[in-house]
Amino acid sequence: MSNLVKRAIFGSLYVGLILAALLLREHLIYMVVFGIIAFLATWEWSNLVSTHRLFPLRRISDSIAAVYLFWATHEIADKGVEYSFFLIPYVGYLLYILVRSIYSERQAMPTDLAKVYFGQIYVGLFLSIANIFYTDAATSLILLTIFVAIWANDTGAYLAGSTLGRHKLFPSVSPKKSWEGFFGGLIAAVLSSGLLLGWEQCYLGILISIAATWGDLFESMVKRSVGVKDSGNIIPGHGGILDRIDSLLFTLPAVAFILWVIDTYQHLHLG
């Protein structure tokens, strides 16, 4: 089977699972799909930056912690802040990591500890922002738009870059990316955002395209620093889960922040 066929088949399966999780509005399907993503992405991050080299079981516990954070934030977003006590076990785990580090390899401890904590923020916390959009019926369409716009951005960037690409966007991090590809992706993201949300909100496509590009460049920088092409090989033809959601992990907090700023401004000046 050619690599192109693999990419098409497994890429379609990935997209299908995401759309099922978002459109069917079934709690179990949503939690299973995103729980698996949180687990695998955290595992791949740990493997990518070589944390817990001598203690692989700790990678499992870190990955489970990210899944728990996703579940806990979903419950809080769905039921209200009075359920914030669900975060107590997660905070306890973070404290346990600190104490555990005292008894770990002293030489590797500071670096590994920073990598573990960053992985929890980068994957667990940033991915959990999806719950803010998903549990609110009024904003669930925004979450769908984020995914669709990222996919449109990737497609537009590939088509424009492969046919028109001449000027390198960031050659030291990602030699294949070009400015022509970037603007092709931006146009595709704006169009998809406008079609799904209405043209008065198509500006989100610009934000999504920029954040998605930064997210992809960030992971490319990490992979280049450790000398690997992909974060994993769980998706044939596509690499790892982290390779699929690197753009999402930057886009979710960016969109949430901008919408919060807009909402705050409107309440202050119009309310």
Rank of each mutant, 00 (worst) to 15 (best):
F182G: 04
F182S: 06
F183A: 04
F183G: 05
F183H: 13
F183K: 02
F183V: 15
G184I: 02
G185S: 02
G185M: 03
L186N: 01
I187L: 15
I187Q: 09
I187E: 05
A189Y: 05
V190W: 03
V190Y: 03
V190P: 02
L191Q: 01
S192E: 05
S193G: 08
S193F: 06
S193R: 04
G194V: 07
G194K: 07
L195S: 13
L195E: 10
L195I: 14
L195N: 10
L196Y: 02
G198W: 08
W199E: 12
W199Q: 04
W199V: 11
E200V: 10
E200D: 12
Q201K: 10
C202I: 12
C202M: 13
Y203E: 02
Y203N: 04
L204Q: 00
G205H: 09
I206F: 11
I206A: 07
I206M: 10
L207Q: 07
L207G: 07
L207V: 15
L207M: 02
I208R: 03
S209I: 05
S209G: 10
I210H: 13
I210S: 05
A211V: 10
A211H: 11
A211G: 01
A211M: 03
A212I: 10
A212H: 08
T213Y: 08
T213F: 08
G215F: 06
G215V: 10
D216P: 08
D216Y: 09
L217C: 01
L217T: 01
F218T: 14
F218S: 14
E219N: 11
S220A: 07
M221A: 12
M221Q: 13
M221E: 11
M221L: 13
V222W: 00
V222P: 00
K223E: 03
K223N: 04
K223R: 04
K223S: 09
S225Y: 01
V226E: 09
V226C: 09
V226D: 05
G227Q: 14
G227M: 09
G227N: 15
V228L: 12
V228Y: 15
K229S: 05
D230N: 13
D230S: 09
